[in-house]
Amino acid sequence: MKNKEILLGPLSKNNPVIVQVLGICSALAVTSKLEPSIVMAISVIAVVALANVVISLLRNTIPNSIRIIVQLVVVAALVIIVDQVLKAFAYDVSKQLSVFVGLIITNCIVMGRLEAFALSHGPWESFLDGVGNGLGYGLILVIVGFFRELLGSGTLLGFQVIPQAFYELGYMNNGLMILPPMALIVVACIIWVHRSYNKDLQEK
């Protein structure tokens, strides 16, 4: 595999969320607003990329029987360090993210990439793979967050987007959009559009 494909593949044809259907739970939890979606995307990119590199460097020393535990320890340690650093240098951001940072540990994409890629590839490829998959995940998060905040609250990044005149004409925010089920439905719509463009992904 070419490095370019490793980096860009997860954005579309190999997307962790809409093709492999991983990391769905956090896609539900953090996407009711655009801003946490973006910050979550950045944090996941950082954690997947770093964890991939660490595991890739250790890959020849890890005993097979405890490899999952080793991966977990590496991911958990990285997430805690990210959390602590945010608290010390970017307190406002860390307050906003609160529990979401801890949630990264449970994101299946992180463990999935470690198992499927980092254990069998060199550090540079693993780094690209981590960034690529983080981006692919973040892309979907941002799209879902965009539609849920726009239709559910009429705002984007906290700023009012839908003009007051619309509300006076009887337009109402769709309260259902900010509830978790709508995240699933929006993700399903993205999968629908994506598969109608990429016919080779459709199951026979």
Binding site: T61, I62, P63, S65, I66, I69, V70, V73, V74, A77, I80, I81, Q84, V85, K87, A88
Partner: peptide, 23 residues
Amino acid sequence: TILYASVMVIIVAALLAVVSVSL
């Protein structure tokens, strides 16, 4: 395996302690 796990745990614990105390 046991040695690997022990060394790893000690290194990670020390690392986290240093990060926590210094920050």
